[in-house]
């Protein structure tokens, strides 16, 4: 115990190196655990997605169903928060004087200062 209180320089350097290695060892192991957990979770998510795709591939009735009321369909956001996108869509609909579900938005992207 006295050796640790009046610690010598070689011992201190050894503990410093060992400590850094222990931190790395612990976090690398944790990283492996999280990577495995992530793989399991994403593969679980992929199974229902594949099932859904297969169901979509089945023959569909000749009559096309109406889109769900209020839906805007799929569109992409680039550097834009969903809340901001919702506001942009509402402003566009209001400016054009058309209901929002009759408009089709393909993507919304933030215009940076350099691009203006």
């Amino acid at each position: 115990m006295n050796d640790l209180i009046n610690i010598s320089i070689p011992t201190a350097s050894g503990y410093a190196l060992l400590g850094y290695c222990v931190v790395f060892f612990g976090l690398v192991l944790l990283m492996c655990v999280l990577l495995v957990m992530g793989k399991i979770m994403t593969s679980k998510k992929a199974v229902p997605a594949a099932e859904k795709a297969a169901a979509e591939a089945e023959p569909t009735p000749a009559v096309k169903a109406d889109p769900a009321p209020g839906t805007a369909g799929e569109f992409k956001l680039y550097n834009t928060e969903p809340r901001d996108a919702a506001m942009v869509m509402a402003i566009v609909a209001d400016t054009l004087g058309k209901p929002i579900n009759e408009l089709r938005f393909i993507s919304i992207r933030e215009v940076t200062e350099n691009e203006v």
């Binding site: 320089i9 410093a16 931190v23 976090l27």
Partner: peptide
Amino acid sequence: PKSLLLGAAAQLGVFVAFFGAVL
């Protein structure tokens, strides 16, 4: 999860300062 490697790398100062304090 690879971010954990950066969290580990950034503990370098802990052990360098420990060594410096002993010095």
